[in-house]
Structure formats: C-alpha cells, structure tokens
Design a protein around this nucleic acid. Structure first.
Lengths: 231, 231
DNA sequence: CATACATTCCAGTAAGTATTAGAATGATAT
DNA sequence: ATATCATTCTAATACTTACTGGAATGTATG
C-alpha cells in the first residue's frame, strides 16, 4: 500500500464523516417535526407568541410535556423563548419556520391518502372556500361585499390577522351574532385547515340564518402565499 | 349533567381525536425525514431512479439497511418502487418531494449554526458561485462563454441535467481533462451543496491550470427555483 | 427444474424517545 | 427574607427505532 492509497482511504473516510454530519444536522429539523404534539405546538406558535401554559391548554397536554416538547423545538432552533416576569414566552425563531410548517402540511396532504380522507370528512358539509379565491376574497372584503371574521381567541387576532378581518372568537359568537349584518356573506377563518374553530363558527352562523363560508387559510398559510397580514 | 353538557364533552373528546389524527399523519412525513441516512437516500433519489444496491453503495450502507430505510420512505409515500427483472428501482413519488428536500435543507442551513459552520469549512477555498448567478450562468453557458460540466456518474446525468451541461464524471476527469478548453471558465456542479464531487473536480481542474468555479446547485435545487432541466 | 441473484422479512439487541411524577430553579409579591 | 407561582430539570417507565444476521421470497438464467 503506497502513500497515495493511504491518502485516498483516509480522505474517503473523513469525507464520509463530513457527509454524515451534514445530514445529521438536517435530520435534527426532521426529528423536531416527527412528533404530532410538537407539530401542533408549532402551528399554535404560528398564531403568535404564547407562554407554556397557554400552549399546553390549547394543545391539551400537561405543562410538563409541553415544556419538554418546546425544549426540543428550541434545541433545533425552530423556536425561541423569552422571559417576561414569571412567564416564559415562546415564539417562532423566524417566519421561515411558519412557511416550513405550511409546506410540510401541504406535502402530507398531497401524499398521504389517509390525511386526505380525514380532512375530507372534516370539510364535507361545511362549505369551504377554494384556494384560488384568495385574491377575490381580498377585493370583496375591501369593498365590504363580504364580512371576514377571525374566530380565534382575541390574543391571537391581536398578534396578527388577515386584512379587513374583525375578531369574533367562536366562544363569543353566539351572543355577538347581532354584530354581523344579515345581508352579507360571512367568511370565517381560524388557525388553518387543521383547526376546528371555523367549522364550529359555521354551524352557529348557519343556525342563525347567515350565509357563511370557511376560508381554510390561517395567518401562516396566508403569509406563505406572499400575502400580508395586519397587526 | 344535562344532555347538552354530555354532548359538548363527547364532541370535545372526538374533536381532539380528529386533531391528533391529523397531526399524526403529518408527523409521518417528519419521521421519514428524521434519519440522516434516509435523507441521504432521498437526496440520491432526487438525482434519478436507482435500485437498492446503487443506493446502498452511494450512501455507504448495507443493502439491508438501505432496503429498510427505503421501505419507511415508501410507507410515508415519499418514494415509489418498481420492479424491473431482478432489480427493484426506487424513485421519488412526486417532484414536490425533491422540493421538500431542498426546502428542508435550506431551513436547516438557515437555522442551525452547526450546519453553517460545517458547510462553510467545506466551501472555503473552493470558489463557489453565488446564488444570484443562476440566470447569468444560463446566459453565459448558452453563449459558450463558460463550460458547464456535470461531474456526477453518467447515469445520473442521463436521468436529468442542467441545460448546456456536459457529462464528465469526476472519476474520469483527470484522463478527459483535455476535452475542456483552456481559455474558458469551467463551472462544475454535482448533487447539491452536500455533495463533495464538485469540490474534488475543482481540485483537479485547478491543478491542471483551469479557471474553475463551483455551482452549489444540483438538479433538485435548480428545479426548485423553477428552472427547467434537460434529459 | 435447479441455481443464482436481488431484495425483503423476521428476530434480536442496543440506543433513543415520549410521558409521568417529584425535586429544583428563578422571578415576583408580601 | 419568605411564600408563591411558572417553568424546567431529573429520574424512571414503557415504547419505538436503527441496525445486524439469518431465513424467505420472487425473478431470471442455465
């Protein structure tokens, strides 16, 4: 075995190590995205900054478990945390993370038949706005032809919402139903396609005799399409 | 507890189950992307269809292990397989999967300092073409001002390559070096930013006195930017 | 039909992950 | 300071995953 051969072997060896390291790093992001609860937390954080307890309640898990999932998300640099008094607030590390969530979910919707079926049964019945309607919706909302309502909790609305949308959390919708003009079409949206709030809102609106549609987008989807949100 | 209360509880319960199911599905994609070796296989499949052994050799793992990783990728619908005689050939289930790989890697590059450092040390020294140069490269390659060479194995070139690129696998570069005009700038590319072939090619080219640059894109990156490839 | 070959399936081990309970930390309010 | 609250850390459990070796499957070839 001559020097050249040795050199080749060594270099092959180390180049394999380099490669392994690179893929290993990317896999860290994949690992972060490999747990359903972490994905749910990530989607919640797309709605805006929240503390551990808010996240735990909304994802319906224990605070401890939320904390541990959040620390995984943090160690993969998808989220950051900040202390404010007693509470620790988490938020997305960058807008690209929201885009990543939207793209991951889109890929899953497209590739996994099980997911398509589950979503289909969710959407069936409650009229859902087609994707290409975004620009039109924007125009009609601007002109006042349709009323866009954000049915998420008020704090999430405050952190960022669709243009021309007004906040009526689904919990208050029944008693505030009079605020909505009867002669206009209502478009309700929530956190995104996986969120059930808009569906609930549609039920209430239809029961009250309103013409109501759902927009499947949430703020993350809206932004991922390059459209701007308001604060 | 009245009927309404019961109904609310039941519906809350089942809506949680629905949600869990949805996130669970998306997490299947995340799980598929949570192993470094699977990601490497996925990137290889972005170069074109390959059988299990080819994949195993290129990823430097056993055939058995490759097979088991591939079956995970298959069960998450990211890849599909087809039998041709004795061999089973795997390929991406859809072009969107290649785009997903590019986006996942980009997010990792952007968020993870460790990865930036590792990549930086790879690229350092070997001149690398900036991202905005893609359109210009295309024009200069079209006019013949620069020579674009694809240094991947020939079969990958055949499965799809950049416009105006000619195939000179890095293994043959030394003995075919005369084919490259001395008076033109050479741009070498391989499978993408994580691939070491283009780097090796640059060393050989520089040694032979050529002016050579690296394009970090592979065909997956090129396509993800909306540019077309040739067959 | 028998043989060779490519790939997958199965079983087992070692390592890693999700989840829960209990202790510890760090900030605020009295 | 002391008590209190939100959150994290530690330890322990059950569960899942990566990888290895040997057997099994299915296809082509003599």
């Amino acid at each position: 075995m001559n020097k050249l051969a040795i050199k080749t072997v060594v270099s092959k060896h180390s180049s394999r190590q380099i490669k392994d390291g690179l893929y290993e790093q990317v896999a860290r992001i994949g690992k972060a995205a490999s747990s359903p609860k972490r994905l749910e937390l990530l989607e919640l954080l797309c709605q805006g900054e929240m503390n551990v307890e808010q996240l735990a309640v909304k994802a319906e898990i224990s605070v401890k478990l939320a904390s541990s999932h959040l620390s995984v998300l943090k160690s993969s640099s998808l989220v950051v945390s900040r202390r404010d008094g007693k509470n620790i607030y988490y938020s997305l590390a960058a807008p690209e993370v929201a885009k990543f969530w939207v793209e991951l979910r889109s890929l899953a919707e497209e590739r996994l038949l099980d997911l398509q079926a589950a979503l289909g049964s969710l959407v069936a019945g409650s009229g859902s706005l087609a994707v290409m309607d975004r620009e039109m919706l924007l125009r009609e909302a601007a002109s006042g032809e349709v009323v866009v309502i954000d049915v998420r909790p008020e704090t999430e609305y405050a952190a960022g919402h669709l243009p021309f949308a007004r906040s009526i959390p689904v919990a208050e919708l029944k008693k505030r139903i009079a605020e909505i003009p009867k002669d206009k079409t209502v478009v309700a949206y929530c956190r995104g396609p996986f969120c059930l709030l808009a569906g609930e809102a549609l039920n209430i609106l239809h029961e009250a005799g309103h013409k109501a549609l759902r927009l499947e987008d949430g703020v993350a989807e809206w932004q991922a399409r390059g459209l701007s949100i308001q604060r």
